[in-house]
Write a protein that binds this DNA or RNA. Structure first.
Lengths: 341, 341
DNA sequence: TACCCCAGTCGAAGCGCTTCGACACCAGTC
DNA sequence: GACTGGTGTCGAAGCGCTTCGACTGGGGTA
């Protein structure tokens, strides 16, 4: 391996000069700078990451904690992860992958051993055991999602309360009076995952505000579960004409189930999904949806972290406003009242 | 931060003694060992990763290169990734996440800067530009998948040739005489991805060997594309009664399409998928399938790497034998010949 | 002309650990 | 009683880099 000393010798300067050329932290004459850069290229020099980290107290590595848990929708997670990695690279950082099942011990491990400079933590529960740990850690972190008590933390998320409300408003504006939220598997609610809870809240509040019926039900991923859940829902509330779906993997089978139950989308049943745009567009009919800007949020998380690493200030909570795109799956409610009133 | 010197002072020994207690590389008296361990616990000491890496020339970090490319099925990838991370942790290693779009430069970067000790590379193409680079790198690597020329490499994969053949054999055994392979999106074939190509080969060879018709067609992910592909397939080859599917995300909509085209599964059309077991089981009807043992392969990759890091020998190519589970989606062929012969 | 200042460079210290060789001590051995 | 061979511990060197303080020389100022 070629070291900085080799480069220095080759260029006829001191090792520290090479270091300053590379970091730009002191002024170096054009002449020297170019000579050093030529030597770097000629020898194919790459600074040793550990030596650099040891001397500078910076590893240039971010930890990314991703959940690999039941009920989570994997492709969305990967979009976040990809955005984090890509953005980190843009700021000359690498990403260490941790799974959530290492828990808060894992966070302490990588932080206290100085393996990483900062952490991005996904899939935050309302009462997350990792939150107090993150608060005490001697390095910056950013959460994607946010706990109930977000004091002293930096959190970034889609505004799921507003997202839930948006869906209700959209359907209510179209004249629907009875709505249901078809949510994530119940395990996700049980562990009080922020995004699921908040969508629920937004949905319920908006239904109340608009004076429409709003029922909520979790839904598992198997076809039979979907069939059963929807059938029961429509049995109990036969006048439901609007469905809000926050559960990506069931979207395909759900359309199937509705067909099988004799409900045409959107004629008999309007649908709004909370999901990635490409998923919404891929369906037949294309789904009206509130998109999940995973790319944007992942990038923002890294940028916030970099800012904090450089000593800058970032807002404690950044909520992306949701945006709803109306597509083919939602339309004005059928005029029941003409026949039933 | 607590350093090894603090621990040494606290325990009344030399720093090197602490190091030897921690590594176990020299015999230490029970008395001293316990005293040191107590001090470690009392002070909450964690060795500094960079210092350790610098001194020992080992970072205890593995690079994992995952593809984030069009046509790849994300959940399967994540299963691999999760298995790699989990297994790495079992051997006291961490995982640095790289995306394939950094290409071979990314590999050189992390390897030559000693950021990592070894690499796991996924999604290998038959003529992969990264292969020559990996061969030259001064550290071990393991490929999940394998290129045409695998000389000097360590590769682990499901035996997709056998998988393709297995599917044909299963259907041929059931009396089907005309089969089709509904494959990945064409982009995946165009970049000569190993698993797709080899399944094709196995499928074609087995069809030839069994003397049955075997047509092959790529298939994109959108509903319309699936509908169009299947319709065209059945127009051109109306007597196809067996379908092999290697394209996880289309499985749901495909069942839909077949229904729409009036083909009942399995009565009119037998189906065998190459996909994760849980996906196969979630469908209605449940799919006969060759499973993709992502967990196993990911774990094996890491274990091979650890063995190589310790100077051990590992086989150049490890092919997992595929196993087919017959479920509801395949049954004996309808007895056409009675009516048409 | 004497002075100061700044740009440009160097040398050395030190980041926190591992590892090598040396050494001290105690048991056996002859 | 001198010698050998472990066993357990220590000190020092060194991993490859960053960074601090110091030094040099040339240009501007008084």
């Amino acid at each position: 391996m070629v070291t900085i000393a080799d480069v220095a010798r080759h260029a006829g300067v001191a090792a520290s000069t090479v270091s300053y050329v590379l970091s730009g932290k002191r002024t170096i004459s054009t002449d020297t700078r170019e000579r050093v850069q030529r030597s770097v290229r000629a020898l194919g020099y790459r600074p040793n990451a550990s030596a650099r980290a040891l001397a500078s107290q910076r590893s240039n590595v971010l930890a990314l904690v991703i959940p690999l848990r039941t009920g989570m929708h994997v492709p969305v997670m990967m979009q976040f992860a990809a955005a984090v990695v890509t953005t980190a690279r843009r700021y000359d950082h690498d990403v260490l992958l941790l799974t959530a099942d290492e828990g808060s011990d894992g966070l302490e491990r990588v932080a206290q051993s100085s393996l990483v400079d900062a952490l991005v933590v996904m899939d935050i529960e309302l009462h997350d055991e990792r939150v107090p740990v993150l608060r005490e850690l001697p390095m910056p972190s950013v959460l994607i999602g946010y706990p109930d008590d977000a004091d002293g933390l930096t959190c970034i998320d889609l505004d799921f309360v507003a997202a839930g409300a948006h869906c209700v408003d959209h359907l209510a504006d179209l004249g629907h009076r009875s709505l249901a939220l078809l949510g994530t598997p119940s395990a996700v609610y049980e562990r009080q995952t922020g995004f699921a809870q908040r969508t629920l809240t937004g949905f319920a509040e908006a239904a109340e505000r608009r004076g429409v019926l709003g029922v909520e039900t979790p839904c598992e991923h198997t076809f039979d579960a979907i069939l059963h859940t929807v059938r029961q829902l429509l049995d109990e509330h036969p006048d439901i004409t609007g469905l809000v779906v926050q559960n990506e993997p069931i979207i395909g089978p759900l359309l199937d189930v509705l067909r099988r139950l004799g409900r045409r989308v959107p004629d008999d049943m309007s649908l709004v999904a909370i999901c990635a745009d490409d998923v919404a567009e891929r369906q037949v009919p294309q789904l009206s949806s509130v998109s999940i800007p995973a790319e944007r949020i992942g990038a923002q998380a890294v940028e916030a972290l970099i800012t904090k690493l450089e000593g800058g200030e970032v807002p404690a909570l950044t909520l992306q406003p949701p945006s709803l795109t109306a597509r083919e799956s939602s339309c004005p409610a059928p005029h029941r009242d003409l026949t039933t009133a």
